[in-house]
Amino acid sequence: MKTSEQAVTRTPAPAIRIDKVSRHFHDAQGEFVEALRSTSLDIAEGDFVAIVGPSGCGKSTLLNMLGGFDHPSSGRITLDGQLISGPDIDRGMVFQDYALFPWLSVLDNVMFGLRHTQSREDARAIARQWLDLVGLADFERKSPRQLSGGMKQRVAIARTFATNPRVILMDEPFGALDALTRRFLQQQLLKIWREHRKTVVFITHSVQEAVYLATRVVILTARPGQVKLDERVDLEHPRQINDPKFRDLETRIFDALDEELAKTFKLEASDGYAD
């Protein structure tokens, strides 16, 4: 633990290296789609990287490739120098729609990823610890069906962090939640992240969320996706959204995004006329 924390504060070694990655495919209608073009990005150990971009910019494609569910058409993605070839418990994932197993209790959901490596007792102890940390200790016997959206996502976060992965990939995890729940979960996530310093890659539509949470905000261009802007966020936690520095950064990111949004709309408009 100590050594990895020092590594964060000193010169961070890149944990994830995305090297000239392109991804293109034919969609359901047989149209050629170029989602990403020669995108490169290094992510350091302990970084919290938020990726923002217009819809269809390839940010989900990128996350899927990091998860090992999709593969680059060209280029390579490595974690600690190892080529990512498929999904692995090393790379935890938090999904927008929670993906809890409805036939398992809350506790059994959190224990799910621990059963491969831990005894039942140890798994239960670790799972309880994490449920406690997200404030759901009293809900361990409940079925996920009985929980609200925010609570489900807290269970999913506990389930992912409990397995102690190298990297945590989050695919618009708070996108389906109302504003207040969202704010609460952002704070909880930050608390956990600051304690455990996991490497996080976080996809979001919200610039404010990105600047509030991340150590680094990456903007992707409209299709084909490429890195448009890569901003380090050096603000102290807890960040204030009306802090002038926060606002400044937000404005800069919005300016970059606006250009891409304009392109996206132009693209969609021309598509519309062509049909």
Binding site: I89, R91, F95, F101, F112, H116, T160
Partner: peptide, 11 residues
């Protein structure tokens, strides 16, 4: 499918 993905990233 998201449950299958969840299963795979959970080992």
């Amino acid at each position: 499918p998201v449950l299958i993905r969840a299963g795979r990233v959970l080992g």
